[in-house]
């Protein structure tokens, strides 16, 4: 197991990547990316069982699907730093002829990406399909997915949520990034989500909370628990309580940085709060 400090160093470096990527092209989504940095770093470097290299079918390894594709900066940075593609390529984010499109896609052949996402609400269905394929293939590895909380306003999710429990898709761990924010404001202001735990439970899922969703140790403990609940006839939902914009004080606790890049000055300030650990791309 990687020491938590090693993971923390990676988190800090990924944060720098995110900030520098969106700053360079003056576009992209830093808020949700920063809020999920600890989670995706933990997933790819501790939680998931991964093979070396990348193939689309991903047999005999765990799979991850990012449904809220707009947090592509954190996904790309973690993939690159896990070795899926050269870290230098992060500098091409959102530029013409890049494999690092604004939202993730398989279209340009970027290793690590298995589905296009961006138009919201589709990832859970895809994850269920991949989980069902694993069962058919007698592959005991798991499927992980990540969804925004606001994203659950898309109706397709509830079709998928109903299907997964009805069909005992118990090799799936779907995590909801519960940051309480979406583009136009808080989820409470835009469209109240109600009690998500009660909703998932009513749909027949096994639900657990990770209350400190930006705390690596809490994430590791929570995901270990989530894993232990797979294979028991129910899909598993993790409610990951995060802070949007985590790690950059002026980006935290607000929806303002959902889809906005920092200025030169703001970038400098943000990077000072996250000093280089592994080296910038």
């Amino acid at each position: 197991m990687a020491a938590v400090q090693e993971l923390q160093d990676l988190v800090t470096q990924v944060r720098r990547d995110i900030l520098r990527m969106v700053h360079k092209v003056n576009s992209g989504h830093p808020g949700g990316s920063l809020g999920c940095t600890e989670f995706i770093v933990a997933l790819y470097n501790e939680v998931m069982e991964l093979k070396e290299g990348f193939d689309m079918d991903g047999k005999d390894e765990d799979l991850f699907f990012l449904s809220n594709g707009h947090i592509s900066p954190v996904f790309y940075s973690v993939l690159a730093r896990r070795g899926y593609f050269p870290v230098e390529e992060l500098s091409t984010f959102r530029l013409i002829n890049s494999r690092l499109q604004g939202h993730p896609t398989t279209h340009e052949g970027l290793p690590g990406v298995r589905i296009a996402s961006g138009s919201l609400g589709q990832g859970m269905s895809v994850a269920i399909g991949a989980a069902q394929a694993k069962k058919l293939n007698k592959d005991s590895n798991l499927v992980y997915s990540l969804h925004g909380d606001g994203e659950l306003q898309e109706g397709q999710n509830w079709e998928a949520i109903m299907y997964a429990s009805g069909n005992k898709v118990d090799n799936l761990i779907a995590t909801i990034d519960l940051n309480g924010q979406q583009i136009d404001g808080s989820t409470d202001d835009v469209l109240p989500m109600g009690d998500l735990r009660a909703k998932f439970e009513a749909f027949g899922w096994d639900v657990l909370d990770i209350k400190e969703g930006n705390n690596l140790e809490a994430i590791l403990k929570g995901m270990k628990e989530a894993k232990s609940r797979t294979g028991k006839g129910k899909p598993v939902c993790v409610l990951l309580h995060t802070i949007m914009g985590n790690g950059v004080d002026f980006m935290m606790y607000t929806h303002a940085w959902h889809g906005k890049a920092p200025s030169d000055e703001q970038l400098e300030n943000a990077l000072e709060q996250n000093p280089v650990t592994l080296g910038d791309y």
Binding site: D57, G129, D139
Partner: peptide, 9 residues
């Protein structure tokens, strides 16, 4: 979506 996912595998 499930159909898309099933191709992965």
């Amino acid at each position: 979506g499930i159909a898309a996912g099933l191709t992965i595998g």
